[in-house]
């Protein structure tokens, strides 16, 4: 019988000590991290987004950076600049906040599209080019962007094409009453994150990231993924369905989930569980931002109900 991956389990449990009652979100973040994907968190301020990222970076001993996106933020403020060094008569690269292992891109929709795309390009390429010089980003590199759905004034909603760069879109939501109470007790005498100790080394993360693609995906499961993705393109009220990139993302994420669970193969359950997070933001639904997420979730739910799960037929016996 399969046992969940122990190290990952430790990471999740450690993070859970500071982010109360958000085990699912934590797990999803870790899955994204392992799948070399990035996460977009869409929620109101103050529900623990920052705390989540900080905690993850702390327990994995990763370098944490934060970029607060503002309307006047320039692309170079994200990626870094080359500065002329008078002493050595050379240009010297001053790395921007993107040069970290785990980067929090806060309120990404408040800066100009130009700056947004500088970040998003970095997400896709895994490197930045400044003044003709290419700089590799760190490894592992994990971005958690947040989007504030309430403040409409002075925001630049992310274009659909760029939403595609995020592996998951997650909504954190308010904690339950009990959790909120516990949160207060916990922070009564200082924040516990200061006492959080690393449980794995950041290099272990890199090794794990390399192990994820080795997780076996059976033809039947691949077929299931493809059926799901294709079904999104036929949904009513959806302008644009999920791209093939979305299908790849779903498979990779499922592999990572299977890895977290300590399984050497992907189950349809993995796919089904992750589909709302992976596919939701890849749909172009004609609606406003606030209700978009619930609308998307509903659509994905429809798709999941339509597509039949591949299970054994009578003639199949291995």
């Amino acid at each position: 019988m399969t046992q969940p991956n122990l190290q990952i389990q430790q990471v999740i449990e450690a993070v859970e000590q500071v982010v109360i009652g958000k085990r699912e979100t934590i797990k999803l973040a870790v899955i994204a991290l392992l799948a070399k994907g990035h996460v977009l968190i869409e929620d109101v301020p103050g529900v623990g987004k920052t705390m989540l990222v900080r905690a993850i970076s702390k327990v994995t001993n990763a370098e944490f950076r934060r970029i607060q996106f503002t309307p006047d933020l320039l692309p170079s403020d994200v990626t870094g600049v080359s500065i002329y060094n008078q002493d050595q008569q050379t240009f010297e690269f001053r790395a921007g906040p993107i040069m970290g292992n785990i980067v929090l891109a806060d309120e990404i929709n408040r800066s100009s599209p130009k700056t947004q795309s500088a970040l998003l390009e970095a997400l896709e390429e895994g490197k930045v080019t400044i003044d003709g010089e290419t700089h590799q980003l760190h490894d592992p590199f994990f971005v958690m962007a947040t989007q504030n759905p309430i403040e409409h004034g002075g925001t630049y909603p992310l274009p659909e094409a760029q939403l595609d760069r995020f592996l998951f879109r997650i909504k954190m939501g308010y904690p339950t009453e009990a959790d909120e109470l516990e949160l207060l007790s916990m922070t009564e005498h200082g924040h516990p994150i200061d006492h959080l100790q690393p449980v794995i080394h950041v290099d272990d993360l890199v090794i794990m990231q390399k192990e994820v693609p080795a997780v076996y995906v059976d033809g039947a499961v691949k077929q299931y993924i493809v059926s799901l993705v294709r079904e999104t393109r036929q949904l009513e009220g959806v302008e644009l369905g999920v791209s093939p990139r979305g299908a790849i993302a779903l498979m990779r994420a499922s592999q990572a989930l299977a890895y977290v669970e300590g399984r050497s193969y992907v189950l349809p359950d993995d796919v089904k569980y992750l589909a709302p997070y992976v596919l939701g933001h890849r749909l172009v639904v004609d609606t406003d931002l606030l209700s978009a997420q619930s609308e998307d979730a509903e659509k994905i739910e429809q798709v999941l109900r339509k597509v039949s799960v591949p299970t054994a037929s009578k003639d199949f016996v291995r």
């Binding site: 799960v309 299970t311 009578k314 016996v317």
Partner: peptide
Amino acid sequence: QRAYLSLLWLLRFTGFKRNKYETLS
């Protein structure tokens, strides 16, 4: 596997039908 498949069939037959969108687990 044969035993499991006939179990699935039995369950369906006795009214515990699996919805098509349901995974086995």
